[in-house]
Design a protein around this nucleic acid. Structure first.
Length: 260
DNA sequence: ATGCCGGGCGAAGCCCGA
């Protein structure tokens, strides 16, 4: 079963690139972030025609997350929840709960910049603290958990070419790294750390400064999984080539393939 | 490079992202 996460930077203007990618990658489950539309404006029938059921936590004009599941997916029935981890009424979390045994979440962490703006930075910290608390309870219940999304953190020294220049930034500063590792400490493994230890492995390239052409990217989109999911993960990939597509998102899909 | 590009909104120019 292939699960992908993709910060799509507006779902409505990316339908062509998404359709091409779906036909090539054939994901069973897609976690979107930054759909940038309300639930009613989400192109539901477009994805239904491609064989998916859409679960959406949208917001007008910005943020917004969604999970698409193939109609043929045999994981069973589930309930859908949205959480407001940073108490801001922003749509950054959607969860599918499969009978309290398996949880799949699509996550969009706040950017938090500039760190001198306490409102934005504190909201990011609060979001992470509540993600920690929430997932700790799931571990207490011995559930299987898959977190996929844009975590807006530069945790590793190779997650950008010049990590030292990001220490006063909300992505690379110590507090954000601490908050991210606190979530990991619940028992998650970051799949990219197991399946890829090469440098220059990125999931985002800014539209500006010829970032793609210079390969000045960031690795900020991740899958964090609980132990039994790690055991069943057989493949990991990043579809970097899509960043070179016409009218791309600034992020590319990251995916895992599971023995489920 | 304290936003250079590229979204949204709404109909010009501002807000936002990483």
């Amino acid at each position: 079963m292939l699960i992908a996460t993709w910060n799509i930077n507006s779902v409505r203007i990316r339908l062509q690139i998404i359709e091409e990618w779906i036909k090539e990658r054939k994901p069973d489950i897609i976690l979107f972030q930054e759909i940038k539309c309300e639930n009613d404006s989400f192109p539901k029938s477009f994805f239904e025609n491609l064989g998916y059921v859409c679960q959406i936590n949208g917001e007008k004009g910005k943020n917004g997350v969604a999970i698409l599941i193939k109609k043929s997916c045999n994981l069973g029935s589930y309930s859908v929840s949205n959480f407001d981890f940073n108490k801001s009424s922003q749509a950054r979390v959607i969860e599918l709960n499969f009978d309290n045994k398996l949880y799949i979440l699509s996550l969009y962490a706040p950017n938090g910049n500039p760190i001198t703006d306490k409102t934005k930075f504190n909201q990011k910290n609060l979001w992470y603290k509540n993600l920690f608390k929430y997932t700790r309870n799931l571990f207490n219940n011995e559930s299987d958990i898959i977190l996929g999304g844009d975590f807006n953190v530069l945790e590793g020294e190779n997650d950008v070419l010049d990590i030292k220049n990001w220490k006063n930034d909300a992505l690379g500063c110590d507090e954000t790294i601490y908050n991210f590792r606190k979530v990991l400490s619940n028992g998650f493994t970051n799949i990219v750390r197991i399946f890829n230890n090469q440098k220059n492995c990125f999931s985002f390239w800014d539209y500006q400064n010829s970032s793609w052409e210079r390969n000045y990217g960031l690795l900020i989109d991740h899958f964090l999984v609980s132990p039994r999911i790690l055991e069943r993960t057989k493949e990991f990939g990043i579809d970097s080539h899509l960043r070179g597509h016409e009218k791309p998102s600034d992020h590319v899909p990251v995916w895992i393939n599971l023995n489920i």
